[in-house]
C-alpha cells in the first residue's frame, strides 16, 4: 500500500536525520551517567509501548473510517460500543499506565540518592553565567564543572538573581536554581569527556547563551586540575604578562572580576583566576582563543547583547599585554 510505504520512508528519513544529528550533540539518549542511563531505558520502554499503541489505535481509526463507507447506514459489528470503550479506553490504558507507574518508581528509586564520600560543588546561577565553587578545595571557577569519573557528586544549586535551571542532557535531568532555596543534585559521570549543558529556565535576554561544560576526567587528572587551582601561580609569568596585569588592575576589570592572589576581587563577573585554561568564553558562547577573547573584552555586547559586561576601550598595545596575561592564567 502507498500510505504505509510513504510513512516508512518519512520515518526512515527522520531516523537518518536524527542519527546524523546526534553526533556532537548533547543527546539525552547517549547517556554518560547512571541517571541519564536509567532515563534512557525508561524512554525506550515508553517508546516501544507508544509505537505499538500509536500504530494499533491509528489502525483502528482508519479501519473505522473506511469500513462502513459502502454500506447504507453503517456496518454492524461484533464489537459493541461498550466493548470498545471498556477495553480500548479503560482496561488497556490502565495496564500500560501501571507499567509506566512501575517504571517511574523503579527509576526514581535508583537516582539522586545520597552516597558516601561525595565531591561537593556549589554552583550559583547568575545572569547569564555560572559560578562554580569547590568548597573543600577552596577555589572558584566559572562556566566549567570539572568532575572525576565514577565519584559521586553533590552539586549544590543556588541562584543569585532569577531562576535558572541546570541541565546536562547526557548526564541527567534538570534541577532548578531558585532564589531563596538551596537545591541539591546528586549524580555521577561514567565516562571521561566534555559534555555540554545549558540553562533551561528562561532567565532574560541572554538565556540562550547561558551554557556551560561538564568536563569529566580520570580521578588523577581531576586532582591535578584541582590542585593547580587550589594553589594558583603567584605572579605573572613574563614581562608582557606583568604589563597585562597592570592594565587589568588599572581598568574597570578588577571591580567586577576576581583573580586570586591579586587585588582584583570583584564578584559581578566570573572568577578569572584560571580563565586561560577554559575551553569557551561567555558561558560557552564562543571558543576561548585570542581573537574571541579580544573581541569579548572590547565589546562583549556584539557577542552577547545585553550581557552584564560593558564594552571597554583599551589601547591596542595594552590590549596585547592584557590578552597575554589573561591567556597565561591557567
Amino acid at each position: 500500500m502507498r500510505a504505509p510505504a510513504r510513512l516508512a520512508f518519512v520515518a526512515a528519513g527522520l531516523v537518518f536525520l536524527t542519527a546524523c544529528s546526534t553526533h556532537g550533540s548533547p543527546y539525552m539518549f547517549d547517556p554518560k551517567g547512571p541517571e541519564a542511563h536509567r532515563i534512557t531505558s525508561v524512554w525506550w520502554l515508553m517508546f516501544t509501548l507508544a509505537a505499538v499503541v500509536y500504530v494499533v489505535v491509528a489502525g483502528f481509526i482508519f479501519v473505522a473510517a473506511f469500513r462502513g463507507r459502502r454500506s447504507e447506514t453503517g456496518k454492524p459489528s461484533r464489537i459493541t460500543d461498550n466493548g470498545f470503550i471498556v477495553v480500548g479506553g479503560i482496561a488497556v490504558p490502565f495496564v500500560i499506565l501501571m507499567v509506566l507507574a512501575w517504571a517511574t518508581v523503579d527509576a526514581t528509586n535508583h537516582v539522586r540518592r545520597p552516597e558516601k564520600n561525595p565531591l561537593k560543588i556549589e554552583v550559583v546561577g547568575k545572569r547569564w553565567w555560572w559560578s562554580v565553587e569547590y568548597p573543600d578545595q577552596h577555589f572558584t571557577t566559572a562556566n566549567e564543572v570539572h568532575v572525576p569519573v565514577g565519584r559521586p557528586i553533590e552539586l549544590g544549586l543556588d541562584a543569585a538573581d532569577v531562576i535558572h535551571s541546570f541541565w546536562v542532557p547526557q548526564i541527567g535531568g534538570k534541577v532548578d536554581l531558585i532564589p531563596g532555596q538551596h537545591n541539591v543534585w546528586r549524580f555521577k559521570v561514567d565516562e571521561p569527556g566534555t559534555y555540554r549543558g545549558q540553562c533551561a529556565e528562561y532567565c532574560g535576554v541572554q538565556h540562550a547563551h547561558m551554557a556551560f561544560l561538564v568536563v569529566a576526567e580520570s580521578p588523577a587528572a581531576f586532582d591535578t586540575w584541582a590542585l593547580r587551582r587550589e594553589n594558583p601561580p603567584s605572579g605573572p609569568t613574563g614581562q608582557l604578562e606583568a604589563t597585562g596585569q597592570m592594565v587589568f588592575m588599572r581598568s574597570p576589570c578588577a571591580g567586577c572580576h576576581t583573580i586570586r592572589g591579586t587585588a582584583a576581587t570583584g564578584t559581578i563577573g566570573p572568577d578569572l583566576t584560571d580563565v586561560g585554561s577554559r575551553k569557551m568564553l561567555g558561558a560557552a558562547t564562543v571558543p576561548n582563543d585570542e581573537g574571541h577573547l579580544a573581541g569579548w573584552i572590547l565589546d562583549a555586547q556584539t557577542i552577547k547583547p545585553g550581557a552584564l559586561m560593558p564594552p571597554i576601550s583599551i589601547e591596542p598595545r595594552d590590549l596585547q599585554a592584557l590578552l597575554a596575561y589573561l591567556r597565561s592564567l591557567k
Binding site: V57, F60, I61, V63, A64, A65, F66, R67, G68, R69, S71, E72, T73, G74, K75, P76, S77, I79, T80, D81, G83, F84, I85, V87, G88, G89, I90, V92, P93, F94, L97, L100, A101
Partner: peptide, 25 residues
C-alpha cells in the same frame, strides 16, 4: 498518568462511533 483514562474513554467512543457508522469525509 490517571488523567489519560477519561481521554482514552472519549477516544474509543469516537472510534466506536465511526466503526459502526458510515463515515462521510
Amino acid at each position: 498518568l490517571i488523567i489519560a483514562i477519561p481521554s482514552g474513554v472519549q477516544f474509543f467512543a469516537w472510534i466506536a462511533t465511526m466503526w459502526r457508522g458510515k463515515v462521510e469525509f
